[in-house]
């Protein structure tokens, strides 16, 4: 079904399809590059903020997340086709949802930015397309089970490396990935072979799911 990337206006020398994945620089090597560097060590801090909201409804922790993610969600929604007032309202909704659904966040399966991205994406579909968004049945840790700390750390590190790997991509390729996630490409224009190293993060999520399934039995 999905066409090759040639259907997108991609110059031939920077195809988003890179069958041979590029070697991934270690996260530390990318520290000198672009804005990603300033976020590198932050993932664990955001995870800690989420835990504080979940366990003690900590408003200072929420203030930190609001200051960092609110303006990013608004920028993301504006690049995704929202006008400024809709983006503002929607970013507000996303932050309220973050507070209310803090117990749903699973740091063994997603970074805080990833989780917030999925909330923002769903609100965009609600508002711009006025469609329902069917979601997979939820899997959550019960009160008696929590993810392994080592798995949380591993997943968060992997998320940081993904930010770094995207920052390292050639400009044209990075733009294509952004366009796909802003909803500027239709599903038939999206090429899934991004050249990004996604195997490791997938494996880490897989391990967390296995442990979760075991805990649910």
């Amino acid at each position: 079904m999905l066409n090759e990337i040639e259907t997108v206006e991609a110059p031939a020398q920077t195809p988003i399809i890179a069958k041979a994945a590029r070697p991934v620089p270690p996260a530390s090597a990318a520290k000198t590059k672009r804005s990603a560097s300033s976020n590198m060590s932050d993932e664990n801090r955001w995870v800690d903020c989420m835990a504080r909201i979940k366990t003690s409804q900590d408003r200072e922790a929420f203030a930190e997340l609001f200051a960092h993610f609110g303006p990013r969600v608004k920028a993301f929604l504006m690049k995704s086709g929202s006008n400024i007032s809709m983006a503002e309202e929607c970013a507000q909704d996303v932050m309220v949802t973050l507070w209310r659904k803090a117990h749903m966040f699973d740091p063994a399966r997603a970074s805080v930015s990833t989780w917030i991205f999925t909330i923002a994406r769903n609100r965009r579909i609600d508002l711009l397309r006025k469609e329902r968004r069917p979601e997979p049945d939820e899997l959550t840790w019960g009160p008696e089970a929590e993810p392994e700390p080592s798995e949380v750390i591993g997943l968060q590190q992997e998320s940081e490396q993904l930010v770094a790997a995207i920052a390292e991509l050639p400009e044209k390729q990075r733009e294509l990935i952004q366009k796909a996630y802003f909803g500027d490409l239709t599903h038939s224009e999206i090429a899934a072979e991004t050249g990004l190293p996604l195997g490791t993060i997938k494996s880490r999520i897989r391990v967390a799911l296995e442990r979760l399934r075991h805990a649910m039995k």
Binding site: P71, A75, I166
Partner: peptide
């Protein structure tokens, strides 16, 4: 589900990289 998690992580990385618009 795990493979989807990897693609959503790309979305999270895009969100980090998108810049900011003051609320």
């Amino acid at each position: 589900r795990a493979r989807l998690g990897a693609y959503e992580a790309v979305g999270g990385a895009v969100l980090e990289d998108v810049g900011t618009t003051d609320m």
